[in-house]
Design a protein around this nucleic acid. Structure first.
Lengths: 134, 134
DNA sequence: GCAATCAGGTACCCTGAGGTAACAACGATA
DNA sequence: TATCGTTGTTACCTCAGGGTACCTGATTGC
């Protein structure tokens, strides 16, 4: 998991180091291997139980899903409600904060999708350059 | 480094798996340990040479800075120009794509900064909850 | 010739994220 | 009673990111 993300100095100037660390922490969580994916599933499709998430977040292990959901819950992006029915059942749902985060992140995704040709071109150019000489 | 970041399905529907993987790749790079920080320094303050960056991106090692800059260069966020002067000199500068990325990322940072109290409260509530029972 | 500066490469090691697999609780059901 | 389904937890292992330390060129100045 990435453990620090920084922002331009002018945004940070009026914050304590502790606050800056917390923000980095939050944003790092947002972009780690599974968090955003899991949260996206929850924002797109009502409350989901553990096993449903396990199926949807394709490739994640039980252990990692548990850890991911705990972190998301701790930071207020997700709620966890235990239903004591027959086979125990746990529902996870995105909070308002969770929805807001996804909404804020989408423009970045769309932008990246739009500039896809630039990335492809940049990589091709770089690889050609390095293969030749350097 | 995080190696995948996903977006809502409706954005992905008209993209090939390869394209989706590339976008995840790009966005993952953006939020890894050092990339965003280094790029931020470059967008804030003209071209910088290797040693200047080494000082500014406080805590990074030579090895990691080299690796980070190579990745940023490969993805088109940074240019690398060698000046063959007396003691060799290499200038790094953010490209238009690099500036655009930082601009796109800033709103997310500002939003997180604004919701700081929510994160603090969520964590406090969670920690109190888990300390008591569970 | 010799030291110093600058940009990097390389070898070695350590840590931590994350996967696998087995086990735990606990009610329902056969 | 035994087994199953569900949500975890725990032990063990692997692998890759990243740090430290040292070495390489190339060039200038002494």
């Amino acid at each position: 998991m990435a453990d620090r993300i920084d922002a331009p100095a002018d945004i940070c100037d009026d914050m304590t180091p502790d606050q800056q660390r917390l923000i980095r922490d939050i944003l790092a969580r947002v972009v780690d291997k599974w968090s955003l994916w899991a949260l996206t599933e929850l924002t797109a499709d009502g409350p989901l139980r553990f096993s449903r998430l396990l199926e949807r977040v394709e490739g994640i292990s039980q252990k990692s899903l548990t850890a991911t959901l705990r972190q998301l819950e701790r930071d207020g992006f997700v709620t966890r409600t235990v239903v004591v029915r027959s086979p125990i059942r746990v529902d996870y749902a995105a909070t308002e904060l969770g929805h807001a985060l996804i909404r804020r992140f989408q423009p970045l995704w769309l932008w990246a999708a739009g500039r896809l040709p630039d990335f492809v071109a940049a990589r091709a150019a770089f690889d050609a350059r390095t293969e030749a000489d350097r």
